[in-house]
Design a protein around this nucleic acid. Structure first.
Lengths: 355, 355
DNA sequence: CTTGGCACTCTATCTCAGAGAGTGCTAAAG
DNA sequence: CTTTAGCACTCTCTGAGATAGAGTGCCAAG
């Protein structure tokens, strides 16, 4: 299944042409376009070979050829040359992402920028593995009755809040005192350490304090543990620019479109995919059924992990039709992941890393 | 333009039939369906009258009649009898909405429930006019450099947070001290009072404190003033179940669908509409072009304001095709608004109010 | 191995005719 | 004056050819 040079050039030309205008490409067009001095008949012979190898197929006898998933695969793996992004767009990106903003806002902006520039759907998975993130600040606010609002801030400035039902009412001074104690004692420690220390303290402290400790522990778990709360699960993924997919002719089928949008709402499958692509460093591409997700049948997903202080903490990417402009999208995703990494890391230094 | 009883019955029957199956209704069908002992010829005469009055129209010469916007208007204003909701659905609603949750979460759940039960798109505008809401708690957390995270909790438990750039670095004890002072002094006062008091204090306090005060003031404005921040504007509206609109045949046109989804993303027009319907108490219905919003051309919007402790603070509603099951949707929106009101009000008592 | 030529296939589009649905009008009946 | 039956008319929808166009596969010659 190795291709000779000519077949490669023709496949590449065919895919580029098909990506550009969405029409099956005939031998005549291809012969002219490819820049090789070949007749259409010769091209037809090559196409027959490519078809046998499963790289292209003909929608019907008298149509031209379109790439198959395998064809795209070969294209992105070996034929495609990354197109550097338009400089002004890079600058826009830098400007938008490297300005001061809180992490949640930053994640949302990133997703939106991805979608706007690619004219597709952008997705960003919020940082995971915050277990290892340091605790910075906690606060308890008494609401009505026994409801206590717990606000927890992690090292990167992300704010989590949740309401807990207490067993008795607490005065605000009690709560303030507890919060101050926490902040003085544990600020800067890692979440896991805080949790461990709390569990230890519970066993020897006064009864009143115990209760608050317990609250804090359960709060810490709720805010941090991704498996503990559905809220955390779905809030972890930001999807933007869904409507960009409506125009796309391949998805013109309402059923497909519906499935896709439902997947955006559910988020479960997407999160799983992104989680999966988090392990591999660098840009990763799922073409059509490769994603294993039915809703993404005619779509491709281009992802890249991003880091905080060198450690991979999340993934971002772009979803579009299988027939998408991979060259631009890949570099877009790549650069965005890097910019987001430096925006999230202390000091805003731009990291360099291979794709 | 007054209708006699027979015309009313026929119009009502026609619209109900059309809502049910989306096909133009012919005189034969209508004569049988209406329960009046009339021939199709008589019905045809009435239809000609209704057409002249602009209540119905025929897509073409030999099709039946479909309602016009005016027809729908008359229908919802005078002909429709509200259908009480399925009891089990009401219970589900009550159960979901009256359980303890923080306001933001509650708003999102409400929107989702609206969309799920109506199988349309649910929208909820987050509480406005929080100027009048009492201040409950503030907190300052120092992030890197001079960035200070300000967390502000309003009386209803809503958490706002924002990052501010300070002129110098503050130690955490300074910040804690400032926060404690704030919370002790102002907790329970109205936002406007807090702001006023702060402005006053600034003029006599020490210089260090001044700076923090200023921060707090600007924070308070940023978190509260709806015109001050774009974030506040767009975060104010929660839209759910957009994908329910994909299946709807009237919106099968990709252009229309695209416009609609873009409107959901932009939110501006929707917010304006909801704001407008906030003034009128009770359920309000915008049919087709009545909304004045191009994207909603073939849609209707059913809204109802909700209250906190008796004061109207926001609006919620449902967006669907003009041909929607108004009876169910109206009562759904009505009951949801009431349930949300009591869920947001202290003590969770169910209020009664006319529609 | 490449190329020109040719028969063949499949789609897309147009037209045409017939069936079906529903109307408007008229004239007669209540 | 209202209602009804009857009838001609209009419009859409569907399926059947017919035709043009695009592109292929294969063969035989270069």
């Amino acid at each position: 299944m190795t291709l000779n040079v000519r077949a490669e050039i023709l496949l590449k030309t065919l895919i580029e042409r098909y990506i550009a205008d969405g029409q099956p490409v005939g031998s005549r067009t291809l012969a002219r376009q490819a820049g090789l001095e070949l007749s259409s008949a010769t091209v037809r012979n090559v196409m027959a070979d490519l078809e046998e190898m499963g790289m292209v197929r003909a929608p019907h006898t008298s149509a031209g050829r379109v790439p198959t998933e395998l064809g795209y695969r070969v294209f992105v793996d070996t034929l495609l040359k990354i197109k550097p992004l338009n400089t002004s767009e890079v600058q826009k990106l830098e400007h938008e992402l490297l300005s001061n903003q809180d992490p949640q806002q930053l994640i949302e902006n990133t997703s939106q920028l991805l979608s706007e520039i690619c004219k597709l759907t952008g997705i960003v998975m919020a940082p995971r593995r915050e277990e290892q993130l340091a605790f910075r600040h906690i606060d308890f606010v008494s609401l009505s009755d026994r409801r206590i609002l717990v606000i927890l801030v992690t090292q990167n400035g992300q704010v989590h809040n949740r309401i807990l039902q207490a067993e008795r009412e607490y005065s605000s001074s009690e709560l303030t005192q507890a919060a101050n104690y926490f902040n003085e004692t544990y600020s800067g420690s890692s979440m896991t350490d805080v949790r461990r220390a709390l569990l230890h303290e519970i066993q020897q402290d006064s009864e009143d304090m115990q209760r608050i400790m317990k609250l804090a522990v359960s709060m810490a778990r709720a805010a941090i543990d991704p498996d503990d709360e559905t809220k955390a699960k779905t809030d972890d993924l930001v999807v933007s620019g869904e409507s960009n997919l409506i125009d796309i002719p391949e998805l013109g089928d309402m059923r497909k479109l519906r499935k896709l949008f439902d997947a955006f709402t559910t988020k479960r499958d997407l999160l799983q995919l992104l989680d999966q692509s988090m392990r591999a460093g660098g840009v990763k591409i799922f073409i059509g059924s490769e994603s294993g997700c039915e809703a993404l049948a005619d779509c491709s997903l281009v992802t890249a992990p991003y880091t905080v202080d060198g450690r991979i903490v999340g993934t971002l990417g772009v979803i579009g039709p299988t027939r998408m402009a991979y060259e631009q999208v890949i570099s877009m995703v790549d650069i965005t992941a890097r910019l987001l990494s430096s925006a999230l890391s202390a000091g805003n230094r731009l990291e360099s890393s291979g794709r």
